[in-house]
Simulated scan of single mutants.
Amino acid sequence: MSDDKVRPYFTTRKLVPENQEAPIHFLRGSIFNKEFWFLRNHFQYPNVTAGSRNLYITGNVIQACMIKLEDLKKLPSRTITVPLICAGNQRGKFKPKVFGEQWEEGAVNQGVWTGVSLRYLLSYVVPNKNSTEVVFTGKDAGKKHNVEGVVPFERSLPIDKALHPDTIVAYEYNGESLPYKHGYPLRLVVPNWYGMASVKWLQMITVLDHSYEGPFQTDDYVYYPIPHSDEGKTPVTTIQVNSIIQQPLNYSIIEEASHEIVGLAWSGAGKITEVEVSFDEGKTWEQAVLRVDFENPYAWTEWRLVWNPPGKGNYKIKSRAKDVKGHVQPQEEYWNRKGYGYNAIFSIDVKVE
């Protein structure tokens, strides 16, 4: 087989429903092709029919409406570069262990999304002034533990976040129609929040004048800091500041020569301003070179650093990122029993021979 036929593959975390981890360590650039977009599902794939091309907006509004996909595409569009990061990314690293898909670093993706601002769509129905939340219902549904009957995947946003101009109802990814497995025909895209907020196969938007209490809002996607208690629980929302090392790989054997350490960093609070790398258990840190995409405010940051090992032996390489708001990756993870938001200092071990 020639070199141009060699390609990375997904890591399967579950088949039913399908959950596949992207080969993040072998992908470069700011935009990932749909071929390497990680798959995260709570239920089996829905049956998308002709009726699925209609979007319903209802609830605490002056006038409910239904918009056809072809009419939606005629409205003023908005294009944004946004990473989607699963709240459970790196769950497999929590100590003590937690239950759930044991994601490593590959439940992440970034691409260019095109759609219509939700704020523009809501202007058609005119939410009442006492509106507090907006609920988004996907077409995917199934059985959920401790919940009677069949439930859809459904999430809400505070009204202010829903009305942000860059919260969009997307119909294109990287200039093409959304792939079926990633939400065709319509998907909500919520910048700066973990991926659970970006509801796939979007079929209904409901404006509320009260708090939404659905199971994917008040049970899942909640930080529970105490093992057997709900005390101190808080909702999962903004993406934590984080960095990963893409190359070299963990526990790899490398030559005693110059090496380029490369990786990615991101934060839902704003741009990455600094990535530091340590080769001596965190005693000293070196500044990595950043490639910041200033034209796209939500895009992640690529970083790199040339390293010349001082000799043969075992080394621990660490990376930590800092964002514009001053948030820095912590030394230890914030443990929570469902395993969300892992963002401890990234660490790998290599052997130089």
Rank of each mutant, 00 (worst) to 15 (best):
P46S: 03
I24P: 02
S30W: 01
A50H: 07
N33Q: 08
W37Q: 13
L55V: 10
K34N: 14
N33E: 12
R40G: 07
F38M: 04
R40D: 15
K34W: 00
H25K: 15
Q44G: 15
W37F: 07
S52F: 05
F26K: 03
P46D: 01
H42R: 09
P23A: 11
L39D: 12
R53I: 00
T49Y: 01
F26I: 00
G51P: 08
L39S: 12
H42W: 15
N54A: 10
N41E: 12
Y56N: 11
L27W: 04
N33K: 07
N41S: 14
L27H: 06
I31F: 03
Y45W: 03
L55S: 02
A50L: 09
P23L: 03
T49M: 10
W37K: 10
L39Y: 10
L39W: 07
G59A: 12
A50T: 11
G51W: 02
G51K: 04
R40K: 11
S52P: 03
G59T: 15
N47G: 06
S30A: 08
A50S: 13
F36R: 03
F38Q: 03
V48P: 06
R53G: 00
Y45S: 12
S30K: 09
N41C: 06
R40Y: 10
R40H: 11
L39F: 09
R40E: 12
N33Y: 02
I24D: 04
R40F: 08
S52T: 13
I24Y: 02
T58P: 02
I57S: 06
G29R: 11
S30H: 10
N54P: 00
